[in-house]
Computed example of a mutant assay.
Amino acid sequence: MRKHMPKTFTLLASSALLVAAASSAQAQADRSDWPDNFTVGTASQGGTYFVYGSGWANFIADELGVSGGGEVTGGPTQNLALVHTGDMAFGLTTMGPASDAVKGESPLAPGMQMDNVCAMFPMYETPFSITALADSGIESISDIPDGARIGFGPAASTSDTYFPAILETLGVNFDRRNGGWSDLGGQLQDGLLDVVAFAAGIPIPAVSQLEVQTDVNIIEFNEEELATVLENFPVAEFMIPANTYTTLEEDARAVSMWNFAIAGCDLPEDFVYEVTKATMENNDRMRSVHRSAETSIPENIKHNTVLPFHPGAARWYEENGYEIADDMIN
Rank of each mutant, 00 (worst) to 15 (best):
2 R>G: 06
2 R>L: 10
3 K>W: 11
6 P>Y: 14
10 T>P: 02
11 L>K: 12
17 L>S: 00
21 A>N: 04
21 A>C: 09
21 A>M: 07
22 A>L: 11
23 S>N: 06
28 Q>S: 01
30 D>G: 00
32 S>V: 03
33 D>Y: 04
33 D>N: 15
38 F>V: 06
38 F>M: 09
40 V>P: 00
42 T>D: 10
44 S>N: 13
46 G>P: 06
47 G>T: 08
48 T>I: 04
48 T>G: 10
49 Y>P: 06
54 S>I: 06
55 G>S: 01
56 W>L: 15
57 A>N: 08
60 I>N: 00
62 D>W: 00
67 S>I: 06
68 G>E: 04
70 G>L: 04
72 V>Q: 15
72 V>M: 13
74 G>Q: 13
77 T>S: 15
78 Q>H: 07
79 N>E: 12
81 A>I: 11
84 H>K: 07
86 G>H: 06
88 M>W: 02
91 G>L: 02
92 L>E: 14
92 L>A: 04
94 T>G: 11
97 P>G: 13
98 A>D: 04
99 S>I: 05
101 A>M: 09
108 L>R: 06
111 G>I: 03
112 M>S: 12
113 Q>I: 08
115 D>P: 05
116 N>S: 12
116 N>D: 14
127 P>F: 03
130 I>E: 00
131 T>E: 10
131 T>K: 05
132 A>M: 02
133 L>C: 05
137 G>Q: 11
139 E>G: 13
141 I>T: 08
152 F>T: 07
154 P>T: 10
154 P>M: 12
157 S>Q: 09
158 T>C: 06
161 T>E: 14
162 Y>G: 00
162 Y>F: 14
169 T>D: 14
175 D>M: 10
178 N>P: 07
180 G>L: 08
180 G>P: 08
186 G>H: 08
196 V>N: 09
197 A>S: 14
198 F>R: 05
205 P>G: 12
207 V>G: 03
212 V>G: 12
213 Q>G: 05
221 F>I: 01
223 E>C: 04
224 E>H: 07
228 T>Y: 00
230 L>N: 06
242 A>H: 09
244 T>P: 06
251 D>E: 12
257 M>I: 10
261 A>D: 09
263 A>I: 04
263 A>S: 15
268 P>S: 08
269 E>L: 07
269 E>G: 03
279 T>L: 14
281 E>I: 04
281 E>D: 11
283 N>A: 05
284 D>Q: 10
286 M>T: 01
288 S>T: 07
288 S>E: 15
293 A>N: 15
296 S>A: 15
299 E>S: 10
302 K>Y: 12
304 N>P: 03
306 V>I: 15
307 L>T: 00
308 P>K: 04
308 P>Q: 07
315 R>M: 01
318 E>L: 11
321 G>E: 10
322 Y>F: 14
323 E>P: 01
324 I>P: 03
325 A>F: 09
327 D>H: 13
